[in-house]
Design a protein around this nucleic acid. Sequence first.
DNA 1: GCTCCGATTGACTGGTCAGTCAGCCGACCG
DNA 2: CGGTCGGCTGACTGACCAGTCAATCGGAGC
Lengths: 199, 199
Amino acid sequence: MSKAPPIEKRRQILDSAVRVFARQGFHSTRVSDIADEAGVAYGLVYHYFNSKDQVLNELFTERWSLLLAAIEEADGSDASPREKLTAVAAFIVDSYSHDPELMKVIIVEVTRAANSFGRTHLPEISSAYDSIARIVAEGQGAGAFRADIDPHFASMAFYGAIEQLLSGWIFELIPASDADYDEAKELVVGTICDGLEPR
Amino acid sequence: MSKAPPIEKRRQILDSAVRVFARQGFHSTRVSDIADEAGVAYGLVYHYFNSKDQVLNELFTERWSLLLAAIEEADGSDASPREKLTAVAAFIVDSYSHDPELMKVIIVEVTRAANSFGRTHLPEISSAYDSIARIVAEGQGAGAFRADIDPHFASMAFYGAIEQLLSGWIFELIPASDADYDEAKELVVGTICDGLEPR
DNA sequence: GCTCCGATTGACTGGTCAGTCAGCCGACCG
DNA sequence: CGGTCGGCTGACTGACCAGTCAATCGGAGC
């Protein structure tokens, strides 16, 4: 066995943690499960991380910062508000189709776990809501969106709809295929922007 | 101290559990916390319930069955599809404004806690999604809603938007007053049915 | 070959709690 | 007044597991 650079062991532990957290949930995974999955000794987890919590925090922060960057980038582009929302929805859906286990962990264990990690990361999470609200507000200013809906309200509805969709996929309540993912990007924006009633 | 009928003690424990779960979350609530809050002995909790889990299950089932009944009732009325959705949204929002602690517990600890209680109650939870989807499908059949959106998809978006709103209130991300509650009922249906773009 | 030092190991400890159980209390009955 | 019985009590136990740490390994440098 050739020696892997230490940094790779750290990565290996993080990747294994995703798999185990996705399979069993954060609370019912023991640190030994992570170590076993990674094929390393129990103590090594504590060589690279201060606590079991920190492993999850790291996974969340790593991914969420990408989401925040994606929203900012969309907002900064010169696309229409509707296109910006589509870009945001697409990024989230693509994140899921690219790495469902990681997104499952982030949503189930952090974003929707408001009494544990959700509370800790509330600032980062609501930062996403705020950025989306800014896109909506801009759309209202430009006359592209109705002005009688509070942007923060619209942002919550938009993000809530997406997250619920992902939850539906995660728990196999609705069909999940590449085609469904592609369709969903359009559909969620179409629903929020055009509404259910015929135009 | 006059003797309270036993059934009242049981109720007292359930009500105390709501307060403690809402304050500390299910996981960091010890059974002794519930007993203390209710002013009864530790063991009495186990006289009325088999486990700590069962206390939460009871709270959830009690409330969720009311929601399911409300959706069914709305669906059974001769109102328009849009009015039916309004009735559903109103019931959920009213439930929250009437007893925020109970709704917080149900949403945070069950509905959104997909790896623990959410998993257990998945059938009941998705039964609600299905009923909402049925309302949408009926609306499509009558030409009141666009036919190019899968009813289950629309149902998830609708419910997700509402739940995200409640989460926003619970964690004080958006203002929560009686006026906001009333406004929200209209707004969530308006957003989903009419869309963000001007008509 | 030898030393050094960070990487790696895994047995062990301390604290936490859910759930148990042996028995107490007080209302009611005969 | 003695007996019974269900509601009620709370100290105790067994299991679990995060986090510690002393010991070992093995590559790099001399």
